[in-house]
Nucleic acid binder design. Structure first.
Lengths: 150, 150
DNA sequence: GTTATTGCAAACAATTTGCATATAA
DNA sequence: TTATATGCAAATTGTTTGCAATAAC
């Protein structure tokens, strides 16, 4: 996400929160701020740690509560993997990406692919249902990397 | 999966386990048996409960250990969602399906879609990497269902 | 016999919750 | 003011592990 997109997401989030009757409180605001700077997956712990590092408020409980609220309001996307949840901002313009986990390193790399989106868009009709969201995680490696040999 | 496929998976699993130097022990065998009958996602707890119901061996620890082993050997697929892991057999013929979570009920329905598979198959080349596996979860509702209104 | 496997209970890790206090509106 | 938000600590939930007893091969 571009710098402008970050700001737009913060504003959008604030608007949605206000509209839901919630307040611009310190803890939640700090979480929104932090997430807006980070375009890709963060865990609750990582968020809590960083907030504490930079001196912002943010107890574990507050971070978890903020993430739950933001997720419910559709402002965050959530991924569950290996027993931990990770979150990232949802671009209000509708843009989104997916993730591929590199098997060598465990790194998570965002990607997007028009062909894939097209296929997903058609699934609803083919199966007779309304698809409201989708999560896709690929696993693989860079083409140059040697295959695993442990 | 058909009845025959179930049996094939059990046999395949047993072969792989033996090849890995592991024994045909009671607990793990019961887990394999149970999973072969259930083609779709089960949690460790569900497995442990069912085993106990039907009188088979199966402490929590054994179930978790069996699932870990089977997953490592590529015999199971694992999905993380809402803080719980779910497992299902991997069809040795390479067939696989994906899942859609119905938002009304939480039910998980398996589906597969050739178009989607085709898109995924092409992603590797388009992005310059080797995709070794993929997990896809859709969320949505049946076309007749009324949209949520809470 | 030797080595893998089991079950129990204790240990863990991620997340949630109760409650009294602080704070935005 | 008054309802929302916070922080702490305790409680839950899902999963892992140490260890002595047991079962496969």
């Amino acid at each position: 996400m571009s710098d402008t997109t970050h700001k737009r997401w913060v504003q959008h989030s604030n608007a949605v929160l206000r509209a839901a009757g919630l307040r611009a409180s310190a803890g939640r605001t700090a979480v929104v701020e932090l997430l807006s700077r980070q375009s890709c997956l963060l865990t609750a712990q990582e968020i809590a740690d960083r907030l504490r590092e930079e001196g912002s408020a943010g107890s574990t409980a507050t971070v978890y509560r903020a993430l739950e609220t933001l997720h419910e309001l559709g402002l965050l996307r959530r991924f569950d993997a290996e027993g931990v949840a990770r979150y990232e901002p949802v671009d209000p313009s509708g843009d989104h990406h997916h993730h591929i986990v590199l098997e060598e390193t465990g790194d998570v790399v965002p990607f997007d692919d028009a062909e894939l989106e097209r296929a997903i868009a058609g699934i609803g009709q083919r199966l007779g249902l309304i698809v409201t969201s989708h999560d896709i995680i690929l696993r693989g490696r860079l083409i140059d990397d040697p295959p695993e040999s442990d």
